[in-house]
Design a protein around this nucleic acid. Structure first.
Length: 521
DNA sequence: CTGATAATGATTGAATAG
DNA sequence: CTATTCAATCATTATCAG
């Protein structure tokens, strides 16, 4: 998958790339009984090919050298269509057609060709569906006709359909309820799971993103990350605010332990000063997800006006309005008829960071909210990472992608796992400063190497780092959720969105590390 | 230029009603 | 069973003041 393009894109190289993609995409169809392996590097012959670790280019780089048509071709092939299908669609719709338009066109063509068969490309299927079809899924077939109209996803190939006649368009990746992952602290939990061979470390890895992403996103992410089922966890079981996230990792899941002290899980305990002002008719005991923006002063003023003159029990209409806004904006009671958004230090506390973690050093209040809203919930992540403590008593080397304000680092530190070398990749200068500041404040003895851009982190660079400091024991990262989260009204474009597509760099880098680790073992 | 402020719905799944 | 309602959601953009 990692080709080196020296010059500008010529047709042959593009075609070769497309065919390589195509071959990779289609391979699981031929070997139905095996877990999907999209990594070009982790096969038996990966080391002979010498593609890993010696190549500076990445997907984004060489995509930029392509023409518009080639980019669209490549995108369509990445979506799971064949080169022929993609080319034909571009011919039909013209060069100006959007990718989704083209995908729909292919979809329509496939419908015409095989009118009775439904399904999607295997890349968009859950591993569940490779084995068996659940009773739930059968029920969905009834409603699929209606949904197919909106579908812009590629369809499964003919030879595969018969084995698994299930439409993936309709919520293939069900989120378990309650959203507790493999178990919570002090409770019984699943202690064992089977990981595909290709998923097993070294290195250990830990990937995070929003649970409530658009349909199909987690299927794709899971498919790339070695077919591991996501662990869906809501941080409301770890602190006083909700945070619905999914984590894909290859860590053991038995003998986890939580950080101490255990944080309070109700608003009233976490923010005691709000208790005396909290009205009886506001039944909230926990906060919703902490986000990057807070309510305007105008809004809290409107709420105060709405409550003005009311006694202890406002009219139902007013209650409904106030409660709705309080839930939407995570407002808390700080006075009589007075609500307010959370302060930055309260966010820090709720997310499990030391207070003032993001304070000072030239960071503005607005940026503080942004950085905190984008961060891990430390107690949740630490619970998952706690299994590493016994395994690495002398500390770990960490590769941290999209580090943000260092949620993973703080979690490991609070677990008492020494940080030997941390290579941290983070776009935001502000966040890098916060991380560096924390590194110094906590008297870390290891090395902190901070880099700017994941896209610039080549196999070559990785290899040099690993030669210098030893391999990585853990690769963590939560790639951008901008284009996935429901909060985004403007550019919720899914995994192929401008920022969220950096997930593919997480995979690229993880796979490179895997290759280099395998070769050096 | 930075920083603060305020306004801006849609996509989901779950719950409920019919 | 379908149809409707409810509820949550790691944000973007425009604007203004300094």
């Amino acid at each position: 998958m990692y080709h080196c393009f020296s010059g500008e894109g010529n047709t042959e190289i593009i075609l070769e790339t497309l065919l390589t993609y195509s071959a990779l995409e289609n391979s699981p169809i031929e070997q139905e009984d095996f877990p999907v392996e999209f990594s070009a590097c982790s096969g038996e012959d990966a080391l002979e090919n010498d593609h890993c670790g010696t190549d500076d280019s990445n997907d984004q780089d060489y995509k930029d050298t392509f023409s518009e048509k080639d980019k669209k071709l490549l995108t369509l092939v990445e979506m799971g269509f064949s080169v022929e299908e993609a080319a034909a669609a571009i011919d039909r719709c013209g060069l100006d057609a959007q990718v989704l338009e083209l995908a729909d066109s292919i979809h329509a063509a496939q419908m015409a060709e095989e009118p009775d068969e439904t399904g999607l490309n295997p890349r968009f299927m859950t591993s569940d569906e490779f084995g068996h079809c659940s009773e739930r899924k059968r029920r969905r077939v009834v409603t699929e006709q209606r949904k197919l109209k909106r579908s812009c996803l590629p369809r499964r190939r003919r030879d595969y359909v018969r084995k698994c006649p299930v439409d993936v368009d309709d919520a293939p990746m069900a989120i378990p309820k309650p959203m507790i992952g493999f178990g919570l602290p002090f409770e019984k939990c699943t202690t064992r799971r089977i990981l595909p061979d290709s998923a097993i470390g070294p290195p250990y890895f830990y990937y995070e993103n929003v649970a409530l992403a658009p349909k199909g996103v987690w299927d794709t992410i899971s498919r790339f990350l070695y077919d591991i089922e996501p662990e869906f966890v809501d941080s409301k079981y770890f602190c006083a605010s909700a945070r619905k996230r999914a984590y894909i990792h290859n860590l053991p899941i038995d003998n986890r332990f939580p950080l101490l002290p255990i944080p309070p899980k109700t608003i009233q305990e976490a923010l005691p000063m709000t208790k005396k002002w909290w009205p009886k008719w506001d039944k909230r005991t926990q906060l919703n997800c902490l986000q990057t923006c807070i309510a305007s002063a105008k809004l809290t003023e409107r709420i105060r006006k709405a409550l003005e003159g009311c006694d202890d029990l406002p009219p139902p209409q007013v209650q409904e309005y106030v409660l709705g806004e309080c839930r939407k904006w995570n407002l808390v009671w700080v006075g009589h008829h007075k609500v307010a958004p959370l302060e930055p230090d309260e966010l820090e506390m709720l997310l499990g960071f030391p207070s003032n973690h993001t304070r000072g050093g030239g960071i503005s209040r607005t940026e503080r909210y942004r950085s905190l809203g984008n961060s891990f919930q430390v107690n949740t992540v630490a619970f998952h990472l706690s299994v590493l403590k016994k395994m690495f008593p002398n500390g770990i080397n960490l590769l941290s992608l999209f580090s943000g304000i260092g949620g993973a680092e703080v979690a490991l530190h609070r677990l008492g796992i020494p940080l030997k070398t941390v290579v941290s990749v983070e776009k935001s200068k502000i966040n890098r400063n916060i991380m560096r500041s924390w590194w110094e404040q906590t008297n870390q003895k290891g090395n902190l190497i901070d880099l700017d851009d994941v896209q610039q982190l080549s196999g070559d660079k990785l290899e040099k780092l690993m030669k210098l400091y030893g391999g990585f024991d853990l690769v963590v990262g939560g790639s951008p959720c901008n284009n996935l989260t429901g909060s985004n009204r403007y550019t919720r474009d899914g995994l192929e969105g401008q920022h969220s597509s950096l997930f593919y760099d997480y995979f690229r880098i993880l796979d490179l590390v895997k290759c280099i680790m395998a070769r050096n073992s």
